[in-house]
Design a protein around this nucleic acid. Structure first.
Lengths: 261, 261
DNA sequence: CGTCGTCTTGATTAACCTCAAGAGGTGTGG
DNA sequence: CCACACCTCTTGAGGTTAATCAAGACGACG
């Protein structure tokens, strides 16, 4: 735990891959040996501008990142949020030029991992190639879910769903519990994520607080009634495509979860 | 051109991969040699139910398919449309159980390609593994764009954008031109795709017709003013991540487009 | 102590939904 | 061949949700 931040983040990333893909020792070592350059950025900093071409992926070590689309009127829509351990823009390895941007929503530390190294690791270890492909598929699954939430749900459902999702993901990544977790985002940014205005998000937050479902204050979420919150959100954890978390959150690499390969 | 439908569809699929990934002769042969079972379905048939597990991907040979999410109230949200040549649900190779369903929006012919064969081809040919991964990334890019369109655009912009996108994709797949193309979908289904009600889609279609931008009747789109339509849609072809189509659409495999590998 | 970003609340407006009803087109059975 | 059912498209009237406009409070930071 007193490692350098880049190694620690690679640990988190490997942990995330292992949740869904069994990887052998050689593959795991290859992930942990990836070259990694830590970079710290302030909140509201654009790490990648829309339309730009990159030669590296960004692994989140700390803070909150978002993938966004810039609209004609200057407004933004955030399509994905990335927590520590997420390799945001892993798909840029096969799609180095894309239409979206990546922004830090809060102060953040990101680890830059060169495409060349990721590509080489995937070539050397086919199981890794599949794991990377799978990671992109999970990203796509999230986006598909997001389309349906924004397209068909009202504001209250959307806000509730986001809190449920981030709670689950935070717990899965051992960053907090479903009942209480850090979520360093402003109401305005919540609006950009949910397809709402910040003002309306504010009203919905008040409603959810008064209903006793969830409280959001200064970058921190406290779920006061999980059952009712998940019902309000029409939340189904299955969509996260993750195994159910065990009773206790494993502090480090859960070797017992890794099937032999 | 008088081949069996499954070989023809694999041709289209290979063509699509080659648009973005250079593939050698061996890889191309491997794609064309994939086992393929054609199946015909009526419109409104659910090919894959939400939450189900599959062991094959679906290559569209004819008709229109959509990926959808079923909401609690029974309503549907379509998150992606698939035209002939698209391997819909290619990502199911690495994510065999997912939350979405696949439905035929019109009568359609789909070609079932077993996961096992796709996986083996990817293992044998790393370049194919990258091409498949890239195809999933393109899918994700589409979804990300869709999130921002549904989250931030009004109904007129959304409808216009969809027509622009399907027109471009139809032209790219040599199924029609950007100015006139088949689009076998009902107004209700358009609504399910755009996050609107079918009734409101109807009103917007009337508006666009009266403005002289585009006409939609009995499954066919006629663009009457492309420049203004694309402006109304805030459409940027770059988001499709495709090279600009040449002056003429190549009728078969464009060998001259394939870089040596 | 003042400034800036964020949060909060109220009043008004606009976009889209819901409910309702009828028209056109197509396939099917009498 | 006609009658009927069914699906899709069309249009109107009224209601609801969320956006917009406006203003003030709170808190962190220089």
């Amino acid at each position: 735990m007193h490692q350098r931040p880049d190694r620690q983040a690679l640990d988190l990333f490997l942990r995330r891959l292992l949740l869904r893909s069994p990887l052998g020792l050689a593959e795991r070592d290859a992930v942990l040996a990836l070259p990694a350059t830590p970079v710290s950025v302030k909140g509201r900093f654009d790490i990648l501008h829309p339309g730009e071409t990159t030669d590296h992926a960004c692994l989140v070590a700390d803070g909150l990142l978002g993938r966004f689309d810039q609209m004609a009127d200057g407004g933004r829509q955030t399509s994905s949020l990335y927590l520590p351990g997420d390799m945001c823009d892993l798909m840029s390895v096969v799609l180095p030029t894309s239409g979206w941007g990546i922004a830090a929503l809060s102060a953040a530390t990101v680890i830059q991992v060169p495409h060349a190294a990721l590509r080489e690791a995937a070539l050397r270890h086919p199981a890794l190639a599949f794991a990377f492909w799978q990671d992109t598929a999970v990203d796509a699954a999230h986006l598909a879910k997001w389309v349906s939430i924004i397209g068909r749900s009202d504001a209250r459902t959307r806000v509730a769903h986001l809190f449920c999702e981030i709670g689950h993901r935070s717990e899965q990544a051992a960053l907090g519990t479903r009942a209480a977790f850090r979520f360093p985002i402003t109401q305005e940014q919540l609006g950009e994520t949910l397809g709402l205005t910040g003002i309306h998000v504010n009203r919905v937050l008040r409603l959810l607080r008064e209903e006793g479902l969830v409280e959001f204050r200064s970058g921190f979420v406290r779920v006061t009634d999980r059952a009712r919150l998940e019902r309000a959100a029409e939340f189904d954890p299955a969509f996260l495509l993750l195994p159910e978390p065990g009773p206790a959150v494993a502090p480090a690499l859960p070797h017992q979860l890794v099937p032999q390969h």
